[in-house]
């Protein structure tokens, strides 16, 4: 790529890919805007070329825990115990480790942590263990296929915790899941990337995609915004010189994106305004329930039996 006059890269998604490609790009001082990769090692390595537009694990977990505590308190603290289910790769295992440390600090007891491989042939065992321990809240961090399998098995075994509270889950804020398995998806909460529903450009993009019969996912506005961010930097750099573009990115205050982040500000490569939101499946829609400034629905918690 380097020899073909590439000025900058936008990309990411799978964290492992991000780790490798950002480092490769750093060798050639190639500016790299990561849109979705959540592993904090992406920006913690001091690579000067790497800018992450979205929030990382640390921020998302903090926010997720803060919001969970608030939701629980507002409902009169019905939930005390939690169980974690996670896929055993970089994403799930990393998240589970953070949550295991954070939850007890906020007064939740972690009853158990259950890893599973991807692909998993069967989630019945996990469902059985959830049934045996009967946690108030279940926090699943899995990819789409396994989470759907788990949600379906739980429905089958009639296991109903007070809430399924996902963090960065592959399915919980995915319209395909909601459409294909409305019952299993009902009232599932997620703390994840989501566009700012107040921004007309974001809603317009969503409408145009849905008109084409495609499912709206959070990485669409993320990627779109990251490209806009880079375009803005290129314009201000008024040059295709890599160092100048890197500098323009570092000093970016770009605010015209689709995410609820406010003006962009990079500190050590991390966009400090980046934050996740909380969503919940209600009926056939995915509603924003937190933060209050732009939520479009009230949280349903505990889930009615």
């Amino acid at each position: 790529m380097q020899s073909e006059g590439v000025v900058a890269i936008v990309g990411g998604y799978a964290s492992a890919i991000c780790l490798a490609t950002t480092q490769a790009a750093a060798r050639y001082d190639l500016p790299y805007v990561v849109d979705v990769g959540v592993t904090d090692a992406i920006v913690n390595r001091g690579l000067k070329n790497t800018f992450r537009f979205g929030p990382g694990f640390g921020t998302v977990t903090q926010q997720a825990m803060d919001n969970l505590t608030k939701i629980n308190e507002a409902a009169g603290k019905p939930a005390k115990t939690v169980m974690l289910v996670h896929e055993d790769g970089l994403f799930g295992a990393g998240l589970a480790k953070l949550l295991q440390a954070e939850l007890p600090k906020r007064g939740f007891e972690v009853l158990d942590t259950l890893p599973h491989p991807t692909p998993a042939r069967d989630m019945t065992n996990i469902a059985l263990q959830i049934k045996a321990k009967n946690p108030d809240i279940l926090i699943p961090s899995s990819y789409y296929g396994e989470f759907v399998l788990l949600a379906r098995t739980m429905q089958q075994q009639k296991i109903k915790p007070k809430a399924i509270y996902a963090v960065l889950n592959g399915a919980a804020s995915n319209f395909r899941f909601v459409k294909e398995f409305p019952e299993a998806a009902q009232f599932v909460m997620d703390c994840n990337h989501w566009h700012d529903p107040r921004k007309p450009a974001a809603e317009a993009l969503r409408k145009s995609l849905e008109a084409q019969g495609k499912f709206w996912t959070y990485n669409i506005p993320m990627n779109y915004s990251a490209v806009l961010l880079l375009a803005d930097a290129l314009e201000r750099a008024a040059s295709t010189d890599r160092a100048k573009v890197t500098e323009a990115l570092a000093s970016s205050t770009f605010a015209d994106h689709l995410m609820p982040y406010g003006p962009t500000k990079f500190v050590n490569g991390q966009n400090t305004g980046a934050a996740p939101v909380n969503t919940q499946v209600q009926g056939s829609d995915i509603k924003v329930i937190f933060p209050a400034e732009f939520s479009n629905a009230k949280v349903v918690f505990p889930v009615p039996a």
């Binding site: 055993d88 890893p115 998993a120």
Partner: peptide, 14 residues
Amino acid sequence: ESLSGLFFNESLAQ
């Protein structure tokens, strides 16, 4: 597989 998944964990059952 089912019992080892229950008593250990799914990843190790593999």
